[in-house]
């Protein structure tokens, strides 16, 4: 109930009650066109995804039961062949997440809540630019520049921290290790996690932040009380997108280290675990038709695994939101 009316407030006209007016009808047409377009786009994505899946299925299933010699030495069936590859994929991706997530969240919080706007915009821009660098360039940079730079670090880890299984050594002389690849992958998935996190951080309702500020919360306490709980599901979604990118990334791994399909936790050694994507890229061009089926079958495993990860993440996010709602 305001007693003074500001001049900007123009009197609102009578509500349009004539539902049959041309304007209303065209609005409804617009509605229908948009709904149709949205439905079409959604269906198209489903069709493309199904197409990829069917291709993998048709081409890959024969790979499950080819002559054991096709898998290579030491493997007598498909699962023993793909298991170390899947292990390598997950292992490297998790290492990349360990590198990227804390950094991404810190940068996102810096951009959304700490930096003055003058600084926040350029920092955000630079991080976004990282996403535009082709992965081949990351691969080259990782295999040469970063590997060189990491040599002393790797040696030090091998000398002093070799009681930790990850750093068991012996340290690789050329620096081209799983650790190097994980760092490169971490840099590659940083932009997507940062971008999504900073968006959700920035969307924290003003109301919730003021509730915390009004209680005398410091900036970090405001983040802990109001920002993080609100942003949790969005941040998880961002991490999952980053993980998806890491799981499927080929170049960074192929170009950084020479690998072999084996189980090892040692990330500073000469031979590091192979990933599915890198294995396909390495072998596809000179593969026999049988071997091609095997490689595609490995791709199918990666597809299924990525799908499962996303599915579980959705479920976790949904559960979080249901808790929030009630």
């Amino acid at each position: 109930m305001s007693l003074t009316a500001s001049p900007e407030q123009t009197p609102t006209g009578p509500p349009e009650s004539d539902s049959g007016s041309p304007a209303r009808r065209s609005a409804r047409l617009g509605d229908r066109i948009f709904a149709g377009a949205a439905l079409g786009a959604g269906l198209l994505i489903m069709v493309v995804l199904a197409g990829v899946f069917i291709f993998l299925l048709i081409q890959g299933v024969p790979g499950l039961s080819v002559d054991p010699s096709t898998y290579g030495q030491g493997f007598d069936n498909f699962w023993s062949y793909v298991a170390p590859l899947l292990f390598g994929t997950i292992f490297i991706s998790i290492l990349a997440l360990i590198v990227a997530v804390p950094f991404a969240l810190a940068v996102a919080l810096f951009i959304s809540h700490y930096a003055p706007r003058r600084l926040a915009t350029p920092v955000a821009y630079v991080i976004d630019l990282l996403a535009a660098v082709p992965s081949v360039v990351y691969g080259l940079w990782g295999g040469r520049a970063l590997a060189q730079a990491l040599k002393p670090v790797i040696n030090w880890l091998g000398d002093y921290l070799n009681w930790i299984p990850l750093f068991k050594g012996p340290a690789s002389p050329n620096g081209q290790t799983a650790l190097t690849a994980a760092l490169v992958l971490g840099v590659m998935i940083l932009p997507i996690i940062t971008a999504i996190s900073r968006e959700v951080f920035a969307q924290t309702p003003r109301l919730n932040e003021e509730a915390a500020i009004g209680l005398g919360a410091t900036r970090w306490e405001v983040i802990r009380l109001a920002v993080l709980p609100y942003a949790k599901s969005g941040v998880i979604a961002g991490i999952m997108l980053g993980l998806g990118r890491a799981l499927g990334e080929t170049m960074a791994v192929t170009m950084v280290y020479s690998s072999s399909p084996k189980f090892t936790l040692n990330i500073i050694g000469d031979t590091s675990p192979q990933t599915i994507a890198a294995n396909i890229a390495n072998n596809y061009s000179e593969a026999t038709p049988d071997k091609q089926h095997v490689l595609i079958a490995a791709g199918l495993v990666l597809f299924a695994f990525t799908f499962a990860v996303n599915f579980i993440a959705r479920w976790a996010i949904g559960r979080g939101e249901r808790n929030l709602a009630r």
């Binding site: 109301l207 919730n208 509730a211 500020i213 209680l215 005398g216 919360a217 109001a226 709980p229 929030l324």
Partner: peptide, 21 residues
């Protein structure tokens, strides 16, 4: 200012409980 806000409390125009708590 943080100390000030601890000593001078505030109730806002719109209710704002912490949603996750």
């Amino acid at each position: 200012p943080v100390e000030v806000r601890r000593r001078i409390g505030m109730v806002f125009q719109r209710p704002n409980p912490f949603p996750t708590m």
